[in-house]
Design a protein around this nucleic acid. Structure first.
Length: 643
RNA sequence: GGCGGUGUAGCUCAGUAGGUCAGAGCAUGCGGCUCAUAUCCGCAGUGUCCGGGGUUCAAGUCCCUGCACCGCCA
């Protein structure tokens, strides 16, 4: 029977749209899932959304929606984001699912029956505006930070979970299992916290104050505190208590989280589990934050780009590679477009892409594009190449389970470097010129093809699309998720005589600076750039042009913006409805523009004009004092991309 | 206020138990190759290893102290 692996992301709170933090956690979990599949484990990968609590009610109110409808909408955003990032989750749970609600009530009842829940009143500082309690330190000058008014002292009766009862047990458990919470810094943080007496956890909210939640099974007047509800998703999704999935996967459970939710996962959850009477998860994997640095690139372009928006620009696999290569799991890391491009160019285009490209090109040239047999006996460089590959596989197997993703990748790149050096030292083009060296050339090229194949397999958890592309070109028509490390990385198992296909560059270099282009033309960079600038011609590359998302749209609705002479507020259908504020009121009335076909810049950074949000820009051209809207020569459907 | 942590080349960071530890990658310069996405390979630098004190024959590496930044807790 194969081994089991169960990984979760947090269920994301639906009060915000998916951003890089969510994406990183989820991609890490995805890499772990794919890695364990590659090792032949039977795996289960869970993600989802957390939908109860007062913050959701607030967010829904602001959007003038019912909580459930609002949660539906944001939840769908998350669900639709993951396929775009190639996330291989098996299930997507929502805390509003009937199945989850049942399990939460089951566990509450069980903990209640065990005597670990009691009813008690407490006094606190309550802000009437927020409808919630504040602690002293949350207040600003003794006032509620949101409403700028002093909270009132208020008494409330609630249910409490006897968390303190499990404090000693938890300390012992963490000490007996050094990798229960990892990396170590977070384990230490939890232990430090546990040195102080643990307070019991308030796990209810009276319905008069908050009704958006799961009703306590033992008191209809209350709903469950959102954390107590949310954490249970990890077992409700796999059919706790009696389901097969639970029996099979729970013992292998690993939670992956960012450091901001360490306490609920490191303290609340294990004690809840203990009280409910089952064994704790195996690992809590805690990572740091991405600090977003606006790179020079973005600045010069005058736009601030959200990291996730870079995915369609630079490619998903480059993005996934960057996140896993750049962050040491557990520590904070910097995200910038510049750094992403640098990794893309240096590691993916130059090292990986180019190695693959030159290997296939020479195979085409010397062997008519067919995989040659091993010819001559291996020589020293051959053995070195193979040893390096073997060593990388070992490092890879050891590092990923202990969250050393960047080390696994570094090791793969050591093999790529060795392969590039290998080509240099054996110089296949020289061998090709000497008739007697044919067998030697066969061995050399075959070795290179084998290395590339192995690398494709190793990068599959990180860059599934690229892995599949590489394998397809080597005539191995396997899906990334069907690969098995043992079989598919075995040296020498390529089939002789099978055709390979060179294809397009795996990772085209991103030529960002004009200077780079000028260099290509042999012009001195500074003089050239300056000359261009003086001439008033700023050339942009096609890559840069492609970043502009120009789309066709039809104006559905228009109204004048009060107190503004120039602005019209438009609702434009570009496949979706967009609110756009356009400065065309001096020449166009609202009535005139409704129904007009327009072109809009769809990926322009949102802005507020006269307090009204504008998400895009309508293109127009001014000729003296006449202003004409840019449109298409023939009527076309809305939402088409201009190219 | 209490307790972690971090501070090493232009940038991002490795530095294990104190003695080839002063390093890697990127960026920069020079040279080589031509199969390749002007890619690859080789060579070359630069560093008061945050400041100050101490232990030691010997300290980024241990101790004390100051500064800066960060985290957790109050």
């Amino acid at each position: 029977m194969s081994e089991r692996f169960y990984v979760t992301t947090p269920i994301y709170y639906v009060n915000a749209q998916p951003h890089i933090g969510h994406a990183y956690t989820t991609i890490v979990a995805d890499v772990m899932n794919r890695f364990h599949k590659l090792l032949g484990y039977k795996t289960y990968f869970l993600t989802g959304t957390d939908e109860h609590g007062d913050k959701i009610v607030q967010a829904a109110q602001e959007a003038a929606m019912e909580p459930k409808a609002y949660a539906d909408r944001i939840s769908r955003l998350f669900r639709e984001t993951w396929p775009k990032l190639n996330i291989s989750n098996d299930y997507f749970i929502r805390t509003t699912d009937a199945k989850h609600v049942r399990v939460v009530q089951h566990i509450l009842q069980k903990v209640y029956d065990a005597g670990d829940i009691y009813f008690s009143t407490y006094k606190g500082l309550y802000c009437i505006g927020c409808e919630r309690f504040y602690t002293e330190r949350e207040l600003v000058d003794g006032k509620c930070p949101d409403h700028d008014r002093e909270p009132v002292e208020r008494e409330e009766a609630n249910y409490f979970f006897r968390m303190s009862k499990y404090q000693d047990w938890l300390i012992e458990h963490i000490e007996a299992n050094p990798d229960f919470i990892r990396p170590e810094r977070y384990r230490n943080e939890v232990l430090a916290f546990l040195r102080e007496p643990l307070e019991d956890l308030c796990i209810s909210r009276p319905k008069e104050r908050l009704s958006w939640g799961i009703t306590l099974p033992f008191d209809e007047r209350y709903v469950t505190y959102v954390w107590f509800d949310a954490l249970i998703n990890y077992v409700s999704a796999i059919d706790y208590p009696d389901g097969e999935l639970f029996a099979e996967f729970w013992p292998a459970a690993q939670h992956t989280i960012a450091k901001d939710i360490l306490k609920p996962h490191g303290i609340y959850w294990p004690t809840m589990i203990r009280s409910a009477g089952f064994t704790p998860y195996r690992h809590l994997n805690v990572h740091g934050y991405w600090k977003i640095n606006e790179g020079k690139m973005s600045k010069s372009r005058g736009t601030v780009v959200a990291p996730l928006d870079l995915v369609p620009i630079y490619g998903l696999d480059a993005f996934r590679y960057f996140l896993l290569r750049e962050m040491v799991f557990g520590l904070d890391a910097n995200f910038s477009e510049d750094a992403l491009i640098q990794r893309l160019n240096a590691d993916l285009a130059n090292d990986l892409g180019n190695l693959f490209s030159r290997t296939l090109a020479m195979t085409a040239k010397y062997f008519d594009g067919r995989i040659p047999p091993f010819g001559a006996e291996p020589e020293a460089p051959d053995r070195e190449l193979r040893d390096q590959t073997r060593q990388t596989i070992e490092v890879y197997r050891a590092e990923i389970p202990r969250l050393g993703f960047h080390k696994a990748l570094i090791s793969i790149w050591e093999t790529l470097n060795t392969a590039n050096k290998y080509i240099d030292s054996v110089a296949p083009w020289t061998l090709a010129k000497e008739a007697g060296q044919r067998p030697r050339l066969q061995t050399v090229m075959r070795n290179l093809l084998e290395v590339n194949r192995t690398v494709a397999v190793l990068i599959a958890p990180f860059m599934p699309e690229t892995a599949e592309t590489m394998l397809a070109r080597l005539s191995i028509p396997k899906k990334a998720l069907d690969l098995r490390l043992d079989e598919d990385s075995r040296w020498g198992t390529l089939h002789e005589g099978v055709p390979v296909h060179k294809g397009e560059a795996l990772f085209p270099r991103v030529e960002t600076e004009k200077i780079a282009q000028l260099k290509q033309k042999g012009m001195p960079p500074k003089a050239g750039a300056a000359a261009l600038k003086e001439a008033g011609m700023e050339l942009i590359s096609f890559e840069e042009f492609k970043k502009l998302d120009l789309r066709t749209g039809i104006v559905k609705h228009a109204e004048a913006v009060p107190k503004s002479r120039k602005l019209l507020k438009l609702i434009v259908d570009i496949g979706e409805e967009r609110q756009v504020v356009a400065g065309i009121a001096q020449t166009h009335t609202a009535e005139e523009v409704v129904g007009k076909q327009v072109i809009i810049v769809a990926n322009l950074q949102p802005a507020k004009l006269m307090g009204i949000e504008s998400r895009g820009m309508v293109l127009a051209v001014s000729d003296g004092d006449r202003l004409s809207l840019v449109t298409t020569a023939e009527p076309v459907s809305p939402g088409l991309r201009v190219s």
